[in-house]
Design a binder for these strands. Structure first.
Lengths: 108, 108
DNA sequence: GCTAAATTTGTCATCTGTTGACAAGTTAAT
DNA sequence: ATTAACTTGTCAACAGATGACAAATTTAGC
């Protein structure tokens, strides 16, 4: 749980003894692009998360955690964000949820 | 510190008694688009964070915290991510920093 | 209620970054 | 040396975001 998402995919793939071409076809990708993804030169599209989960029989929620955790970390690193950012994020998720609950309640 | 970023801007703007048009011009925006931003229908471009900081004499780091915290929260809400995501993000930022330190060390 | 200012909404051409695809290059194993 | 695996470069095509402007709606003062 410390690697980047690309390194994580590579780990999964090599552990299973798959080539780039083999995994790429399961993900509807060309192997050149999968290579770039594993090396952090392209993004893994979130629309392919479910295919990845199937390919390695992973829990989709854990995979999302890994994926979005990676995304957030990259941004924070890139923009030199303070650790406080994550606390604010947590508060704001809760705020969004509370807003939504309120709206749902109003609907009836 | 619980509102969305759009609501936050609106708060700042109305507290200072500015109209959309007045603030928009300071941010190089048209007032219609600023309205959409405040109402969460468009994104605030991170390239304008410094102008926003100047307009309201805000600390840029706190503003980034607010901004990126909001971004992360939206994503998490949208994709129904577990709270664990933020813990993973924190670990991964540290990982990225440690990698970079290593690279920096190697450079000499 | 009328008017004017402020705000919101709709639309669309354009800009911008991302993606897929393929070619060409490199590396590794035998 | 040959082959398979992987990496890198390039670029047209695509998709989503943005700026701009018009039109509609809301708000506040009178």
């Amino acid at each position: 749980m410390k690697a980047t998402f690309g390194e994580y995919i590579r780990q999964l793939r090599t552990d299973k003894g798959l080539t780039l071409t083999q995994l790429a076809s399961q993900l509807d990708l060309d192997s050149a692009n999968l290579s770039k993804i594993e090396n952090g030169k392209r993004e893994f599209d979130e629309k392919r998360l479910d295919k990845l989960a199937i390919a390695f029989n992973l829990n989709i929620d854990e995979l999302k955690t890994e994926y979005f955790g990676d995304q957030f970390a990259k941004k924070m690193y890139q923009y030199n964000c303070s650790p406080e950012t994550l606390i604010v994020a947590e508060e704001k998720v809760n705020y969004l949820k509370s807003i939504n609950v309120k709206q749902a309640e109003i609907k009836f």
